[in-house]
Design a protein around this nucleic acid. Structure first.
Lengths: 231, 231
DNA sequence: GAGTGGTCTAGACCACAAT
DNA sequence: TTGTGGTCTAGACCACTCC
């Protein structure tokens, strides 16, 4: 059950990056340094760095060194990223308004989806996000109180629920569906669109520590929002 | 500019898999066999196999051997897969109807998107796909004639355009957008839905040999179709 | 027991970057 | 010139599977 050295090195480096000890662009110990530090051969140290490079965590340049890779590669599509970051990356201004933030009980479909006791309460938030003052997303989120007990105490105009949850419950698995759907009256009102304007709806569940951490519905006006990516 | 041996081995194996020489579940040459065949050390042969395993192309089992991995895990979302395969995997019946199949000229936006000479002609197809006799997708596709000259001669009720293109122009890069949008009258008619029913639209470009191979718009009735996945 | 993968070492040669 | 990454070899020990 011993962890092989190359994995120890990988995990150590990942931990240092996640903890913020090593930031984007920072220089990472060279193979030679790792050889001395971990008492391994150069092949072993190299393997750790090469694999992290293949996973887009590090960038290596011959003759120069190894560095922490830029942001988060938008590998695919439904990358878990904060809507705030996304908007700021487009050079626009993000703002948000908390519409609802409270407990819910007796939501059968939900406790079911979260594999919780049917009587347990769930934390709920409904937040409206703006891009340059224009409503761009209604975020309805149900959160497992066992994994994020402090959820209702957050100031979600300063940090997005997504960012907060990533901190307290590092995600482990995700599933999602994307649909085109008509908004309910509430959503249409929030987004300031007509009742018959199509919306792009992302439904997503995230797992942490083997349990469902949160269920979220993201509603976007079809006319103003799209998912995109490449691979 | 010499390709390193571990890459030669990787590419050879990938080619054999893509060509169908090695199929899902087939046993792949062992490290020892590769050592003899390519005249390399075991570390080098191993590296090729390990990297292909990390890329989910192969599966290795200690004591047993190395095998071609099951289909293609729906890594993310907008996997390039044939709608036919997708429907069959659900245990349903796929059928399709070719509505249009012809040349087009003078489509400025398109030659632009394909980086072609504005006057060159483009191959076009419009195909309606059914799942259990119910219309589920309108596929409008524009194809670069330089990369798939025989496109108009195919029988697209037997092979999907996607499958055909994968054969003649192995893809290299993809980008896509997903939108929620109202169908045009033609699309609404084909899908047998109302003019105000939201549609899920996937817009995708594929590259091959450094050029745009095809541009496609896939229209789906929002009520009957969704994208899904996990990671 | 024979074959296979999982991992490691100690040394080597090369290409490239920074100085 | 020095340090870094890119890659390779020849051998080794172990754990596992299959027969």
């Amino acid at each position: 059950m011993k962890t092989p050295p190359y994995l120890v090195i990988k995990n150590d480096l990942l931990a240092r990056i996640q903890s913020g000890d090593l930031k984007e662009g920072d220089r990472v110990p060279s193979e030679t340094q790792l050889v001395a530090q971990y008492n391994v051969s150069r092949m072993t140290a190299g393997r750790a760095l090469i694999e992290l490079m293949n996973e887009h965590v590090l960038i290596r340049t011959q003759g120069s060194g190894t560095f922490v890779a830029p942001p988060k590669f938008n590998s695919t599509l439904v990358e878990i990223r904060s809507i705030g970051d996304e908007i700021r990356e487009r050079g626009h201004v993000h703002s948000s308004k908390v519409i609802t933030l409270r407990h819910l009980t007796g939501e059968g479909w939900l406790t079911d989806e979260m594999s919780l006791n049917p009587k347990s309460t769930v934390l709920f938030s409904r937040i409206l996000h703006f891009e340059n003052e224009i409503p761009i997303q209604v975020e309805m989120r149900w959160v497992n109180p066992g994994l994020a007990p402090g959820y209702l105490e957050q100031d979600f105009t300063r940090i997005t629920p997504s960012q907060y949850l990533m901190q307290v419950a590092p995600l482990q698995k995700v599933d999602y569906r994307i649909e085109a759907s008509l908004p309910g009256v509430g959503v249409a009102h929030d987004l300031q669109i007509g009742n018959y304007e199509p919306c792009l709806l992302l439904h997503r569940r995230t797992w942490s520590q083997g349990r469902v951490a949160s269920v979220v519905e993201l509603w976007h006006p079809g006319a103003r929002y799209q998912f995109s990516g490449q691979f």
